[in-house]
Structures are given as C-alpha cells and as structure tokens.
Simulated scan of single mutants.
Amino acid sequence: MPSRSDDPFGAALQRAVDDVVAAVADLTAPLPRVLIDGRSGSGKTTIAARLRERWPLPAVPRVIALEDFYPGWDGLAEASRMAVRGVLEPHAAGRLGMYRRWDWARDAPGESQFVQPTWPLLVEGCGLLTPESHPYADLSIWVDAPEASRKRRALERDGEGYAPHWDRWAAQEVAHIARNRPQRLADLVFELP
C-alpha cells in the first residue's frame, strides 16, 4: 500500500473527509441535509461515501446521487431543480420526497424513488449547489481539482462510455459555475490535486 506521500490525492481527500466529518458533528439540525457539489472527477462521490461510513450523528443518512436525476447528457441544470422540488423542499417540510431515477441504458425516466423525511440526507452531484438549493443545506460543500486529474479519474471510473461526452458535460459545469457560483455558496471548499 502506498504511503500518503506517494498519493497526494488520497492524502488531500482524507483531510477533506476529516474536515467534513468534524463539520457534520457540529451540526445542530436533528436530520441534517448535506449537499456536496463539484466538477466531474473532483472527488465528491468518494467524499460522500467516506462521510456516510464515518457519519458522526445517530441516524445514518440516505445518500442520493444527482446522477440519478440528470435527464440525459444535457440535463445538469434540470437535475438540480428536480432535486430541490422532489427531495430538498419536501424533506425540509417533513414530507415524503419522490423522484424518478434516470435509466441511462434506456435514456428515459426509470423507477420512482421515495425519500423519507425521517432520514438525514447526503446529496452529491455536479450542479447541485445553487441559490435555490442552498437554503435547504445544513452544510454545503464544493470540491474541485485540476482538469487533467479530474478527467483521468472520471474516465478511469466511468470508462470509455463517458469519453465522448466529457466536453459536452464540462461546458454545462462551466455554465453552472458562472451562473450559480457554488464555491461562494459552500460552507467548505476543497481544492484537491
């Protein structure tokens, strides 16, 4: 196993997770909503998974990935709106949330997913943190990294099926950042290698 000095990304990721766990431990909301946004390949999904494993509060959170919301390769902006309407607003009001998971194989809406208002929420995905979603966050996080390392990690993770869509998706991320300034909305910002 490589040492931390041999893996700068792993070491930076571990420090980020430690900081997020500490921030969650300080939350006073009984069923907090934690939102993690960042560009593709930046590390947000890994942070979410490790945070769930180390969740410092009594009730374990429901993890929701925004990739289940994107209505296809051009759906980054719409997915955020869907998450607000279907999950974040109902959860904040103590109501059952619902969304339809996107079926990427069929390129069509898939089965319905229900979100109990009695669970803490850990929601992650590109395009999530906007002025509309931010009021529902008890903790908001922005994660980024240099394009070359993000692209390498994303393509290693998702394979060559993602490669033809990289530029198209990146353009939507750039538009999201320019329009919504998620890094300014975030309580915690991490720039990973």
Results as ranks from 00 to 15, higher is better:
Y136R: 01
T130D: 05
V123H: 06
L51K: 03
H91T: 11
A148P: 01
L13I: 15
G127M: 14
T28L: 07
D107V: 11
E191C: 07
F9K: 01
K151S: 10
L155E: 09
E147W: 07
R181L: 00
R184W: 10
L51Y: 04
K44I: 11
E53V: 05
A148W: 00
P193Y: 13
A12C: 06
I141M: 02
V123W: 10
E132T: 09
K44G: 08
R39Y: 01
A92W: 03
S80F: 04
T28P: 00
V21Y: 03
I47G: 06
R95Y: 12
E156G: 04
L51H: 05
P131D: 05
R152E: 12
I64P: 02
A25W: 03
S112V: 08
E160L: 01
R106A: 15
P90C: 00
R106S: 09
R152W: 10
V20F: 14
P131E: 06
L96K: 08
A83E: 01
G10F: 12
A11D: 15
P182D: 10
A92Y: 07
A12S: 14
W55R: 04
R50W: 04
D37K: 10
I36W: 13
H134L: 06
R179Q: 13
V63M: 09
A170T: 04
W119E: 14
P135N: 05
F114W: 11
V189L: 09
D167I: 01
S42P: 01
R85Y: 08
V189A: 13
G72I: 11
E124G: 09
R33I: 14
G97W: 09
D144T: 13
D26F: 01
A22Y: 03
D37W: 05
G75W: 07
Y70H: 13
R85V: 15
E78Y: 07
M1G: 14
L35W: 09
G161Q: 12
A148V: 13
M82F: 12
L31G: 07
T46Y: 07
P117I: 00
Q183V: 14
V87L: 02
G159V: 04
A11T: 05
L121Q: 11
G38N: 08
L192S: 08
R106T: 09
W104T: 07
G110F: 08
A93H: 13
P146K: 10
H91Y: 03
T46H: 02
